[in-house]
């Protein structure tokens, strides 16, 4: 029969795991690598937006309204999606881990609730606009490309769309699960 004081005593006297120099060096390496990755990630996403927008401006000289509509929808939906992703990332990084647990849980719940709207409204819309844009461009591709290349573009796009949808589905499922768990924590 153990009372709580016995448990506490055993807990505090459990075999000590102490910090090692190697452990610290590896931690420091991870810290630096994360900082580097965050910088690179931001640069890559920002560059992608700049390139896409520049490309849109470049092709705006074309007289074909159909082409402009198709490419505009595709690039526009991608730019909006990337911009929202960048904004979300920034918001997630500003969540303060040194606040008390109740405030922290509330902040995290607010963040995932915001993500829920992104997933339920923005992401499906972006996906639809992207697909519509692509479908609009298909006749132009067919007219100007060889049959083989046209079939290749068609098939690879379908594969890309399916894979991307699966990826998004998993991400949405995971974040909604987190939100549900957080709301349960808040209720306790």
């Amino acid at each position: 029969m153990n009372n709580f004081e016995d448990l506490q005593n055993k807990w505090q006297n459990q075999s000590e795991v102490s910090a090692t120099e190697d452990g610290f060096q590896s931690l420091l390496k991870s810290v630096k690598s994360i900082e580097q990755k965050q910088r690179t990630g931001n640069i890559v996403l920002t560059l992608t937006i700049i390139i896409l927008v520049s490309f849109l401006i470049y092709v705006s000289g074309y007289k074909s309204a159909t082409f402009m509509l198709g490419i505009g929808l595709m690039i526009g939906s991608l730019v909006i999606r990337i911009a929202i992703e960048l904004f979300s990332l920034k918001r997630l990084r500003t969540i303060n881990f040194s606040k008390n647990a109740s405030t922290f849980t509330e902040d995290l719940t607010t963040y995932y609730s915001f993500r829920k709207y992104t997933h339920y409204i923005i992401t499906p819309l972006a996906l639809v606009f992207y697909t519509v844009g692509f479908v609009i461009l298909l006749p132009l591709f067919k007219a100007s490309l060889s049959n083989g290349f046209y079939v290749y573009i068609l098939c690879s796009s379908v594969v890309f769309l399916v894979l991307f949808s699966v990826f998004l589905y998993k991400q949405v499922k995971n974040e909604l699960f987190k939100l549900k768990q957080l709301q349960m924590q808040e209720g306790v």
């Binding site: 810290v31 303060n96 881990f97 040194s98 606040k99 008390n100 647990a101 922290f104 849980t105 995290l108 699960f177 987190k178 768990q181 957080l182 924590q185």
Partner: peptide, 29 residues
């Protein structure tokens, strides 16, 4: 590490570390 520059010693380093640790565990869903 990421929050070290913002630490103002208002609550004591021990409490501050426990807060970060508890929140990290809570966020690990």
């Amino acid at each position: 590490w990421q929050n070290l520059d913002a630490f103002r010693n208002e609550s004591g380093i021990g409490t501050w570390i426990y807060r970060i640790c508890v929140n990290t565990c809570l966020a690990e869903i």
